[in-house]
Amino acid sequence: AEKTAENAHKAADDADTAAENAVTLVEEAKKAGEKTDMAARNAHAAVTAAEKVAGDLKDSTLNSIRDHEGIAEAVGKVVIGATITTYDGEQFQIAVSSGSSFTITRDGHMLTNKHVVEEYLKLQRARDGKDDFKRKYNATLEEQIWVFVNKEKHDAELIHVSDKTDYAILRVNRRFAKPFRLKAVPERLLDAEVRAVGFPGAATTPFTDREGRLWEFSKNKCHSDVAEVFNDRELQYVMTAGRISQVTEDTATKVKWILHNAGIARGSSGGPLVLQDATVLGVNT
């Protein structure tokens, strides 16, 4: 009987230990459950925050080709020229060539074609020409890039010229509420409806024999502000419709080209080719 009692006592102790272990396990499970709940709540908050950021981003960038006011505030007519300062401090501005550009950041980075800024690069290199000019007219000539956004003239800085293909990046000192978004992948573009945006006003005809005109300075043929050269129509963007008929890759340069029939003129060079949601596929050349 003593033995049996001892066994029973031991069994009771074991049962107590098992119960204690069970309580510990339940508590641990509860804690794990709470942690899981917290993780789920955190994950949900993170998703909501990410959705808000994505939503804000969409609201703060162009998202439709029907947003004409937004587009007018995000495209720019690029004018290459020079400022001439005479010995007595009088200033003149001369336009040499023009093209199009569009903004891709809120702080004024604008994309254009490399060939649109070609005349600027030429003037930058023309040291002898500038020295001769100074001797001949007692005046300095300084190359300049201006960008007209919604008819307002801004000085632009050349930030980058691509060594791979025909694009360049400018920067103007202006805030942009809704820049364009760029398309990262060229999938399913064949037959897509597109719009070409730009300032088609002939890039060169008003400046025939432009280098001659530039180096032959006469006050009465110059403007004090280059804005006087352009009328309202030339400072308003034009949007043309078309479809993509081919997407090819140049075998030598590996550059991808989009063939489309949205009409562009010389001055539209540097403008964006956009889809319906205003995302930019590329730069018109």
Binding site: L57, T61, I104, T105, R106, D107, H109, L111, I159, H160, S162, K164, T165, D166, Y167, I169, P179, R181, L182, K183, A184, V185, P186, A196, G242, V247, K254, V255, K256, W257, I258, L259, H260, N261, A262, G263, I264, L273, T279, V280, L281, G282, V283, N284, T285
Partner: peptide, 24 residues
Amino acid sequence: YHAIFFGQFRGDIDKHAPGVVWVP
């Protein structure tokens, strides 16, 4: 008419225009 597709120059553009927004 031709356009140069931008996606292929993503790294280059990002470097010189920080803040540019890309969409898939």
